[in-house]
């Protein structure tokens, strides 16, 4: 089970829970399972079958380079961090964890 850290802006969807254990062999499965547990979370994280722009998915220690296909190991940490872009952090009409 991955340790998924819930970003602040999604904690109202998780009743204030900040960290949950979620099963899944890939990031896609983890996000789908998180959605089962806390409906509404997926659309804040995924858009057009990819991690939303303005958001970085961290699996382990570093932002993933393989998006939803990233393999997620046992006990590995998963973070969704808004505005991580190095140097040109994006902000736009309804960016990041908004819509």
């Amino acid at each position: 089970m991955a340790r998924v850290f819930i970003p602040f802006a999604l904690r109202k969807l998780t009743d204030g829970v900040t960290e949950v254990r979620v099963s899944g062999g890939t990031l896609r499965e983890v996000i789908d399972n998180l959605e089962e547990m806390y409906p509404g979370t997926k659309e804040r994280i995924v858009e057009n079958d990819a991690i939303k722009s303005g958001l970085a998915a961290v699996v382990g220690e570093q932002p993933t380079r393989e998006g939803l296909r990233t393999k997620v190991g046992e006990d590995i940490e998963v973070h969704f961090i808004p505005h991580i872009a190095g140097g040109r952090a994006v902000a736009r009409c309804g960016s990041g964890l908004g819509r």
Binding site: H83, I84, A85, G87, R88, A89, V90, A91
Partner: peptide, 9 residues
Amino acid sequence: PGSPVGAAA
């Protein structure tokens, strides 16, 4: 829009 505030954080 678009400052490096994310990186600052």
